[in-house]
């Protein structure tokens, strides 16, 4: 990945420890409103661009979700109580029974997902689109992260390259990203 895409990564890394110390007490009592007013938001520069070379109908699609979904019998949940969030990722078997999947993310209401997981993680709908012939095939593993993470530098340095490598390994042609 090109460093210039993330214009002020260094500025973020310089400011973040001080910001965290200033707002640690607020974060611990989940007072997001007062904490995030001066959070050192990253400013993104140029947008990398890869053209879609193949028709979707003959492409393999990968899925990346930020809903904090994990496989509850096989994986530890995301550390939803950590004030800095959880920057790691989980791999979800797209054929897993819905009862094997759970959400560890305390920053959004799970009521829609509890009623129908497709509202945040549309595994059934994407399978419908494969059956219809709109999508060629799906990558066997969906990548799952938690949308609450105060350490984009760790995502940039560790999580994103690892997810790219997984997508390459699964010979993914295009990626659908669904943030929450």
């Amino acid at each position: 990945m090109k460093e210039e895409s993330l214009r002020d990564l260094k500025a973020y890394q310089e400011e973040y420890p001080n910001w965290l110390e200033r707002h640690r007490a607020a974060l611990e009592v989940k007072d997001w409103g007062s904490a995030f007013g001066d959070y050192p938001v990253l400013i993104y520069g140029d947008c990398p661009w890869a053209p879609m070379e193949k028709p979707l109908s003959s492409s393999r699609l990968g899925l990346l979700s930020t809903a904090g979904v994990y496989m509850k019998d096989d994986q530890p949940p995301f550390d939803a109580e950590n004030i800095e969030g959880d920057w790691r990722f989980r791999e979800l078997d797209i054929t897993a029974d819905k009862s094997d999947l759970a959400i560890a993310h305390t920053h959004f209401d799970h009521k829609y997902a509890d009623a129908d997981l497709n509202s945040v993680l549309p595994l059934d709908r994407l399978q419908d689109l494969v059956t219809e012939g709109v999508i060629g095939s799906l990558a066997p593993k969906a990548m799952s992260i938690s949308g609450y993470c105060l350490r984009p530098d760790l995502i940039w340095e560790h999580t994103a390259p690892a997810i790219v490598a997984k997508m390459k390994e699964m010979e993914v042609d295009a990626l659908l990203h669904i943030p929450v």
Binding site: P48, I163, A174, L176, H177, I178
Partner: peptide
């Protein structure tokens, strides 16, 4: 992802972060 040659698209509901 794009820099690695994989075209991406997002479906999102939060305008500012997008």
């Amino acid at each position: 992802m794009e820099a690695a040659g994989i075209p991406t698209v997002a479906l999102a509901n939060l305008r500012t972060p997008v």
